[in-house]
Design a protein around this nucleic acid. Structure first.
Length: 584
RNA sequence: GGACCUGUGGUGCAGUUUGGAGUGCACGCCGGCCUGUCAAGCCGGAGGUCGCGGGUUCAAAUCCCGUCAGGUCCGCCA
């Protein structure tokens, strides 16, 4: 039907008789003797010249036949990749007419997202969305190729799985053949891939769809895709190698540049320096410890186990209302408050306290500080005139995480801004917090192998036990996580015991897995990479919805299909279900 | 479960603080003109439940209460 793609025509094609197909992006008529049509397909736009009139409207689907020629002097369009040429003496074949689109198929207008989603097929015609879909395809292809090259076998695992109550809420699928019983959709193929290791697959991967019935966010949808990986007879080091290879390949496939080797940071250091387990190491603004500066301070607000700060260069210009907003944010994140200090030249700040360093502090708290505290604060932070110091005093963990979040809020780089800084975060704690019964809660999942050096402290000092769990981080986004798994029944029993999971409960929840492990489970380890997030970062998009063809809104609905919808009562009966009217 | 922000012709906005006739801008749409435009230009025209409901008021897009939808975030996401 066509001989060329619209966006591919160049001066090298001059003289060629071509037929191109696509949608009318723009029509410009100049009377009865001349008209222009900008024709768009997924590759771009080319100008077609019609020697007469033409009866087409925006988004009509047409085929255009003509001869490629150089544009006349002075009419070259440098904004268009095809701008040096045009298709001349065109004849137009109408393939389909179209109603005016609900919004312009144009990257230059920001259209309300609900309207975009309601007419997603129109939205996806926009060059930006076409590019995003194709970036995603490139990422998938690069990941598949890398895993295949490294000897991994792609195996598909079931979507209809058994309920294994764990962390995330699962989507439930009622069974017609077994009324009253249900399948669930897997929150990840975690158990299936471990079974494949027992099955001797040795190296498994899959681009797996995962489903979690949890609240949505810019970086979270009900359904998302993972590069899911598991390998036998491997260490954590081997996993890093496999996965690094794949994600570096993906970066190279999309950007043309291959980032350097992926550095590592131990979890405790990430918390201490960046206040998060997913540090964005594209920029500094690291957390500064002020605990010694304010040891024994008379300032009530700083009487806490930990006092930490970040410095925003040039931040002294932030308005009072902006600072109040940051204080609210800090409180919302769990801090008792937020102290701020504008660093100024002494004459600039009326009544500001002297520091002996040629600088002054402008802050409601300044008058409560002693001189040594003022100079200590400036010396420790290294702040200069015009900078802003933000201080949180609290329990260690709270002070770190609150400042870690403020660091990103106030100093964060745009999502697409290079370079691509991958980071392995290692030595996660085995447990994080305790449940109502006082049992530690697994930080990763209960099949995670404890760190060998900490194994003897599992029962005596669980909070101090590190695990062989690790995360991959890219520019402040958690891309995925994995671990070395427990393959020995004795260690698994000890972990379950610490978690407060009894023998009986373990068998009822994971019996099929534990059963399988009795038949020769190899040591194994694995990982999963979030493909939606990886693609969003490469595409420079702050929301994964922009790299998903048909995403849901934050409340989990689809403006195009109307899902979710009430089920016909007949169908309910067939499934042995009955609706309970909502309370109130 | 909670906090904040948004909702005005098809699209994007202004108008809301300080109540006074659906007033305005840009794009799009419809008709006409136009032989080198390219986000074409010129002339004319159509198009509105100011998200929805209630309240205050002589009078509500504007103030108050509620509600719905969307977004960002907290909780949640082993």
């Amino acid at each position: 039907m066509r001989t060329h793609l619209c966006g591919a025509l160049r001066s090298g094609d001059i003289g060629a008789a071509v037929t191109v197909c696509g949608w009318v992006a723009k029509r410009r008529e100049h009377g009865e003797h001349l008209a222009f049509i900008d024709l768009r397909d997924h590759t771009g736009i080319v100008q077609c010249v019609i020697p007469g009139t033409v009866d087409v409207r925006s988004e009509y689907v047409i085929a255009v036949h003509g001869v490629v020629r150089a544009r006349p002097d002075g009419t070259v369009n440098p904004d268009l990749p095809t701008g040096e040429v045009e298709i001349g003496d065109c004849t137009v074949t109408l393939l389909n007419s179209a109603e005016p689109p609900p919004f312009a198929v144009d990257d230059r207008v920001e259209v309300d997202e609900v309207i975009r989603l309601r007419h997603r097929y129109v939205d996806l015609r926009r060059p930006r969305m076409q590019a995003n879909l194709r970036i995603r395809a490139k990422v998938n292809h690069a990941l598949r190729t890398a895993m295949d090259r490294q000897g991994f076998v792609e195996v598909e695992t079931p979507l209809l799985w058994a309920p294994t109550p764990e962390g995330a809420r699962e989507f439930t699928v009622p069974s017609r053949l077994h009324p009253g019983s249900c399948y669930v959709l897997p929150q990840s193929p975690q158990l299936a891939k471990q079974l494949l290791m027992v099955a001797g697959v040795d190296r498994y991967y899959q681009i797996a769809r995962c489903l979690r019935d949890e609240d949505l966010r810019a970086d979270r949808q009900f359904e998302f895709s993972q590069l899911d990986v598991e390998a036998s007879f491997v260490s954590q080091e081997d996993v890093f190698e496999f996965v690094s290879e794949a994600v570096l390949d993906a970066a190279e496939a999309v950007t043309g540049d291959r980032p350097g080797a992926v550095p590592r940071m131990i979890w405790a250091e990430a918390i201490d320096r960046y206040g998060t387990d997913k540090p964005d190491i594209r920029f500094g603004m690291e957390l500064i410890d002020l605990s010694t500066v304010f040891e024994g301070t008379a300032v009530k607000a700083f009487g806490a186990p930990c006092v930490k700060a970040i410095v925003l260069e040039g931040g002294a210009t932030l308005t009072r209302s902006k600072l109040d907003g940051l204080t609210d944010r800090a409180k919302g994140l769990g801090a008792k408050g937020l102290a701020w200090f504008r660093v100024t030249e002494p004459e600039a700040a009326d009544g500001a306290g002297a520091t002996g360093s040629g600088l002054a502090l402008d802050s409601p708290l300044d008058r409560f500080l002693s001189d040594p505290e003022r100079s200590g604060l400036l010396a420790a932070t290294g702040a200069g005139a015009g900078d802003l110091i933000l201080v949180v005093a609290d329990e260690y963990r709270t002070a770190c995480t609150v400042l870690g979040q403020l660091r990103v809020d106030v100093g964060g780089r745009p999502v697409g801004e290079g370079p691509y800084c991958y980071l392995w975060v290692v030595d996660f704690p085995m447990f994080d917090g305790v449940d109502e019964a006082g049992h530690p809660i697994a930080a990763h999942h209960p099949f995670t192998m404890p760190h060998p050096d900490d194994l003897d402290r599992l029962e005596s000092e669980p909070a101090a036990v590190r695990s062989q769990a690790y995360d991959l981080v890219l520019n402040g986004w958690e891309l995925g996580s994995g671990s070395v798994r427990i393959h020995r029944a004795d260690i698994q029993s000890r972990v379950f015991a610490v978690l407060g999971v009894g023998e009986e409960e373990a068998m009822s929840r994971f019996g099929f897995l534990l059963g399988a492990f009795r038949f020769g489970a190899p040591p194994h380890a694995g990982f999963a990479v979030g493909i939606d997030r990886l693609t969003a970062i490469f595409a420079g998009e702050g929301s994964i919805r922009e790299v998903i063809a048909f995403p849901k809104t934050q409340s989990g609905s689809d403006p195009m299909t109307g899902a979710p919808k009430p089920l016909a009562t007949g169908l309910l009966g067939e499934l042995g279900l009955q609706l309970i009217p909502p309370r109130d």
